[in-house]
């Protein structure tokens, strides 16, 4: 934990009206510097935020992106939530475990690749999905996934299917801490699946109405209790009624 890092931790805390709000990005910065959440990093965050180390540890152990063991240069996450699993994620994960000779949340002997099965990463239209250092690797097969990890271990350049050439896990963590790396302009606007509806609309001449078109307003309720009754949550309904009573 050198002076530069400490200064950057202070800088993160200063972004917020109340400094404790900086804790999540601060822990991302600790990971970018130390390759994991370390006791020293926890102490530094605690000191800056005037918390106990136990309070910071309590937060660090709650969130799955914070790692208590060293992570490799490339964190490879295979989505095995239902849709990706069914579409082939389970098989991809099994093949990668075998190929890399590691279990879940383990790192290869050369320290290059940490393999983990992950939950839904909001790219279901590109299933099966793999994330490398939290960059999208869309529409994978067992063969393509193996190719990716082989190339990464051989030091070859690998690009995200919707982003830049892959950086290291530590570099990625620095961006998540709020220090941009200047790569925002890399990659496409969106991938092919994101545009299927748009293309179809273009082919059929479909569009949103002109701004002069007008429909009837005032059909949606303006009554709070009625609104929660109509909303898709019985929980908010009971809570709102509790508040009203």
């Amino acid at each position: 934990m050198n002076e530069t890092t400490y200064a950057e931790l202070l800088e993160i805390a200063a972004r917020y009206p109340e400094k404790r709000s900086g804790l999540l990005p601060m822990l991302h910065l600790v990971q970018s510097v130390s390759g994991q959440v370390t006791p020293e990093g926890i102490e530094a965050c605690a000191e800056i935020l005037e918390l106990s180390a136990a309070e910071v540890s309590g937060v660090a152990t709650f969130y799955t992106m914070y790692k208590r063991r060293p992570v490799g240069d490339y964190h490879v996450g295979v989505c095995t939530n239902t849709l990706c699993a069914v579409m082939g994620g389970d098989l991809i994960f099994e093949r990668l475990k075998e190929h890399l000779d590691v279990g879940n949340d383990e790192t290869t002997e050369d320290g290059k690749v940490t393999l983990e099965h992950i939950e839904c990463n909001a790219a279901c239209d590109y299933a099966p999905v793999m994330m490398v250092n939290w960059e999208f690797m869309d529409n994978q097969t067992p063969a393509s996934a193996i190719q990716v990890v082989d190339d990464l271990r051989a030091g070859k350049d690998v690009r995200s299917t919707r982003g830049p050439q892959l950086c290291t896990w530590r570099e990625a963590e620095r961006v998540l801490a709020g220090f941009p790396d200047g790569l925002a302009d890399e990659g496409p606007s969106s991938g092919p699946a994101s545009q299927v509806g748009l293309k179809l609309a273009g082919q059929n001449g479909w569009s949103a109405p002109a701004s002069t078109v007008s429909g009837s307003t005032g059909t949606v309720t303006e009554d709070k209790v009625e609104a929660v009754e109509q909303a898709d949550t019985s929980r908010a309904e009971s809570e709102t009624k509790a508040e009203e009573s």
Partner: peptide, 21 residues
């Protein structure tokens, strides 16, 4: 009656460098 598809939010997703100001 509106068209079948009505791209508003997605209208520029295919435009080059759509993320730029």
């Amino acid at each position: 009656m509106s068209d079948t598809l009505t791209p508003v939010l997605t209208a520029d997703w295919g435009t080059a460098e759509s993320w730029k100001l």
